[in-house]
Nucleic acid binder design. Structure first.
Length: 136
RNA sequence: ACUACAAACCAGGUUAUCGCUCUCCUGAUAUUUCAGGAGGGAGGAAAGUCCGGACAGCAUAGAGUAAAUGCACCGGUUAACGACCGGGGUGGAUAGAAAUAUUCAUACAGCGAGUGCCACAGAAAAUAACUACCUCCAUCCGUGGGGGAAAAGGUGAAAACGUAGGGUAAGAGCCUACGAUGAUAUUUAGUAAUAAAUAUUGUGGGUAAACCUUGCAUGCUGAAAUGCCAUGUAUACCAGUGCAGGAGCUGCUCGUUCCGUAUUGCUUUGCAAUUCACUGGGUGGGUAGGCAGCUAGAGUUGUACAGUAAUGUGCAACCCAGAUAAAUGAUAACCACUUCCAAUUAAUUGGAGGAACAGAAUCCGGCUUAUCGGUUUGUAGUUUUU
């Protein structure tokens, strides 16, 4: 029986080119203090990949950025399952990029709630995406 | 017991659930993935990138000189250092009547080489002369001019050694005594810096974190180094060809090396001057990747010996992060620590909090800066008991 709440190297977005492409032509959803960029690329290593970031402008210390990224990863890891099962049934990969926009260190409960909001919206978008461009 | 200061050390723990990264083993898949198991997984500063190295690449025939940068009491330690240890000098603070003791700071060579600068005030901030002093001349008796001198006054952060006496027209280290202090020499103590004593000689400021002088040291670039692999296209180097130049000596000067060639001139196998194109795709550059570099080391721990110490030597045991949009986390409970409130049996219970600074990126030795709280040791003070 495979594990459910994993987040290993394959599920993290690493390719610089893909990230640049995502920021140039991707779309975004905001649920302050979180912002999510998303894109349906033509090719990817895994069906669902995600990356996390915190602005260096707001958090100058590296350990603060590390802490926020860890909390983001944790929230994503525990709540991504519905989206993952939805996207696994299709032939279309999806990449996500989460940015924390706030200026103060957030508690985990806030991040978890906002993450759930974003992922629910994304789930609707994925279902609609299938309707717009049906598989051939 | 408490308080203050200094130094050293530590940087919450356990369990459960869900995860991350690396290594090894087993099984499956069938060649890079999955599952299971075992083990490792941030710091005292990982930080700032301020010094010093290791390591790597490039450069490097020589001499002289200059420049630039850094350092600057003495001895020692070290791979090395601008670091560290010990000692000395200088300047504070505390205690003491004093000698002295404790403790803190110290870019601590030279202004007895040259040049410059020294706000305000003051006559003057460096070949000193405003008031006042002495003397000579003139005088309308108010004073004016020349000379001497640097004691008194006032200014200032700093005023041309201090006090007393002699001396003088008035004065002055001008002379003498005592004292202060610099330089030189000798002796004694010390490896030395230096200290003490004696002698000679000086006393004409300060400033070198002003230029500068003296002595010593120093190639340049940093893991985005560097090597290999794959991808891949325009042209810099390289190779070849021709009617040919090219390479190097950090700047300058002197001097000079190697390979190669045509033209012109002349004193003709020598000397002097002058002189770039084409072809190929071996080397290199850019772009986004992978592997190596990449963690066994000036290593860690313990111990014995040497040394005042920094540190060194011997022996034994151990292997202890290796990520790359960047792992080491999240949640809960309990136990320790601590703050506040309440209750009482006065050291316990209950409730609500707090837990810093901060995240490895090739690796070491330092320095600097940030830091909630705790432990130990030493010194000083106060209080209690005997």
């Amino acid at each position: 029986m495979p594990k459910q709440f994993t987040l290993n190297k394959k599920e993290r977005l690493k390719k610089t080119k893909l990230i640049e492409h995502l920021f140039q032509s991707g779309k975004k959803i905001t649920a302050f203090p979180l912002r999510m960029h998303y894109l349906f690329p033509e090719q990817a290593d895994a069906p669902l990949q995600a990356a996390f970031s915190a602005s260096k402008k707001n958090f100058k210390r590296s350990h603060e950025r590390n802490l926020i990224k860890r909390k983001l990863r944790e929230a994503y890891r525990l709540q991504k399952l519905p989206l993952q099962t939805e996207i696994a049934g299709k032939n279309q990969p999806l990449i996500l990029f989460f940015v924390y926009n706030g200026k103060e260190k957030p508690p985990y409960e806030l991040i978890a709630a906002k993450m759930q909001e974003l992922l629910n919206k994304m789930l609707l978008i994925v279902q609609a995406h299938e309707a717009d461009t049906p598989n051939t």
